[in-house]
């Protein structure tokens, strides 16, 4: 293999990484209305999973999925705690790894993922990556 071949591989890898990073930067932290994104399971199955995680009905809850190997989970935790205090809603942090059944049923693939659950126990919004504070506030209000 000539140096040019290796350089080409390096260039392609950097290009792929840059595109991935830019895509992630656009998407991460956006508070998206739930619907298509939560197509992994039927709504009733989702509600069961949420109850199993300890979400109590009658109150809006921010359900945050975290894992041990997750640096941005710390930032997500702070944003959720602040928003929960400001809006008087609940904030529940779940270790994704020890609740894999619920993780599968709720369609969680990455940490941090935050679900906004309304008082009726329905997932109304979903965020992957540390949530954008203003969008999270707007989603709850």
């Amino acid at each position: 293999m000539s140096p040019a071949g290796g350089a080409l591989v390096a260039l392609l890898a950097l290009l792929a990484a840059a595109l991935t990073g830019l895509y992630r930067r656009r998407r991460d932290g956006r508070v998206l209305p739930s619907g298509r994104a939560s197509a992994d399971a039927a709504p009733s199955q989702q509600s069961q999973a949420l109850v199993a995680l300890g979400v109590s009905p009658g109150r809006t809850t921010l359900v945050q999925f975290s894992s041990a190997f997750c640096a941005p989970c710390r930032v997500a935790r702070r944003v959720c705690a602040d928003v929960a205090a400001a809006m008087d809603v609940a904030h529940l942090e779940v270790d994704a790894e020890s609740h894999l059944d619920e993780v599968r049923r709720l369609g969680i693939w990455r940490t941090p993922t935050v679900l906004v659950v309304d008082p009726a126990g329905r997932v109304t919004h979903r965020v992957t990556g540390p949530p954008a504070r203003a969008e999270l506030l707007a989603a709850i209000a």
Binding site: L14, T20, G21, C70, E97, H99, L100, R104, W109
Partner: peptide, 30 residues
């Protein structure tokens, strides 16, 4: 290189994310 560049330029940890995906596909609940 892809993982190192994502970490350097964007602060993304690809391996960390792969960890949950792997656990989800293979693991039982702890």
């Amino acid at each position: 290189l892809i993982a190192a560049f994502l970490s350097a330029a964007f602060g993304l940890c690809l391996g960390c994310e792969a960890y949950l995906v792997l656990r989800r596909l293979t693991g039982r609940p702890l």
